[in-house]
């Protein structure tokens, strides 16, 4: 039944999507989680709730709204088209945008927890040692939050790799552009090509297990402890 060579393009696409999403999210989540960890603003709970929404929302719901917002007829989607000439929906860029939003809590929560665990103490100490806030962030907060960064990166990467509903809604299944691993598996099953589905699924399973193992090992072994 399986037509000879298994198409591995979805694997590469998924890995690329996960890598780009992780990179973007670490940049976006750092200031956001820093703010959440240190603010006393009332808006904090509101922002926390919004950030956590992707955890509870059915991916299809999130995907549906993203499809609406990113489509060329909506202001955001239209603006993107006039800027770049391409649409956000059914494109790799659109997938990145969707994935960033979908995986946001997986980056924000470990980082926020790390920053909260560090507290203000070491930063105040750094300030009294002549370090500017940015200097203190780079030389004290970041290394102390390393565990949080590793956890955030690994979880974001793995979660993006495994997404299905959002990707299907926003990206469809265009081979080489938006057809990621999970969609490929779904299509193999649809066409009763269980052998291919088996290979891809086993790869996912092994990878996910290794990733989680890594996270737990790091959490156990990593020497940094707060005072």
């Amino acid at each position: 039944m399986s037509g000879g060579g298994l198409d591995l393009a979805p694997v590469g696409l998924s890995a690329l999507l996960a890598a780009v999403t992780t990179f973007m999210l670490l940049i976006i989540a750092t200031p956001l989680s820093w703010w959440l960890a240190h603010t006393r603003a009332r808006a904090k709970v509101l922002v926390e709730a919004v950030t956590a929404l992707p955890l509870v929302l059915p991916p299809t719901v999130l995907g549906f709204y993203l499809l609406v917002v990113l489509s060329p007829t909506a202001p955001l989607g239209a603006a993107f088209v006039s800027l770049t000439g391409t649409t956000l929906t059914f494109s790799f860029t659109g997938l990145v945008v969707a994935s960033v939003i979908y995986s946001l809590p997986f980056a924000v929560q470990p980082l926020q927890a790390s920053f909260e665990a560090i507290g203000r103490g070491p930063l105040e100490a750094a300030a009294t040692l002549g370090a500017s806030p940015l200097d203190a962030f780079m030389t004290v907060a970041t290394p102390l939050a390393l565990r949080g960064y590793i956890t955030a990166a690994v979880l974001t990467f793995a979660h993006t790799l495994g997404e299905f509903g959002v990707v299907l809604m926003v990206g469809g299944s265009i081979p080489g552009r938006t057809k990621v691993l999970s969609i490929a598996i779904y299509e193999h099953v649809e066409t009763i090509d269980y052998a291919s589905a088996h290979v891809l699924s086993a790869m996912m399973l092994a990878f996910s297990f290794l990733v989680l193992l890594l996270v737990f090992v790091i959490n156990r072994r990593y020497p940094i402890r707060m005072s």
Binding site: G121, T128, M226, S227
Partner: peptide, 11 residues
Amino acid sequence: YVFQDARLFNH
């Protein structure tokens, strides 16, 4: 500044 809890950088 010497803090009550030292606040050394553990990393």
